[in-house]
Design a protein around this nucleic acid. Structure first.
Lengths: 145, 145
DNA sequence: TAAAACCTTAGACCTAACTCTAAGTCAAGT
DNA sequence: ACTTGACTTAGAGTTAGGTCTAAGGTTTTA
């Protein structure tokens, strides 16, 4: 089964422009061409899945490209690739923790607006907000890199 | 206690340029000025905390600005602001779920490289990868907006 | 009183990641 | 044979979010 660029764009939920851009950036070093037309095959799918994953964990394209280059260099870069993956795992964990932390603030704000709407005015809940433990701007979780 | 722009930049872990840029975009409509110099006070801190939160959950500046404008319009926009906050809560949830999903793929890749490094080559684990359940590129979780 | 160390603005510049246009190729359908 | 529609390229344009420079004002320290 072979697929065109527009099939892949649909699968990955991006535009064909984006796929071409990724290709230009070297993210598809081994995709077959017939008359210059990109043909994606089953053998390319594991990489498409991983690429989709790396994009969605907010890995920059240049870093993904670096990973691609390491893969092309073969077994001697196994360790380096492993470390790059480890780094991404750390990164995801930080992102998740950070989001969970900020979710608490948003949930508090949600409750605040529920109270305010019920009371009909924000002023009526101004003292309620002050009774809540302070979420300190100086004590933020580590920023994801 | 009053604070200059550089104090705030340090607190929020961004550059002074960034704070000025945010101000230019209308994100600090009520900050005091003395001789043209921005003076941040304790009364501004709740908003700085919320702003920091909204930035870190990847809310675009224009959307944050919209929220600011609603706040300035007073109590009659309480419901609209509540809905905006609800939307952000959904958004965070989606982001967290998505990251958790992709974390599984990264963890699998990590195990894969551990095996490959142990074996000394990637080829040696090619069949092991095929025994794993497929992570299907066509069945991705909803993208966070 | 003068230099250092802050602050100000307008506006140019930068980067990442697309997004689109123009001009053209190729294969299939009528 | 020709239109349709999907593909190609190079390269220009866009957007978001900063980042920096130049020219200047103010405040603190020696």
């Amino acid at each position: 089964m072979s697929h065109t660029i527009s099939d892949i764009a649909k699968m990955m939920n991006v535009s064909v422009y984006t796929i071409r851009y990724w290709d230009k950036e070297g993210l598809f070093p081994n995709v077959k061409r017939v008359n210059g037309v990109r043909i994606f095959e089953e053998k390319d799918f594991p990489w498409l899945r991983l690429l989709n994953c790396l994009k969605n964990i907010n890995m920059p394209i240049k870093k993904i490209k670096k990973y691609v280059d390491l893969v092309l260099e073969g077994d001697k870069t196994l360790k380096e690739r492993y470390e790059l993956i480890l780094e991404q795992e750390e990164n995801i964990k930080n992102q998740i923790n950070q989001l969970k932390y900020y979710k608490k603030q948003i949930d508090f704000k949600k409750a605040y607006y529920e109270k305010a709407i019920e009371a009909g005015s924000e002023n009526a809940v101004k003292d309620w907000i002050n009774k809540k433990p302070t979420l300190d701007v100086d004590k933020l979780p580590e920023k994801a890199k």
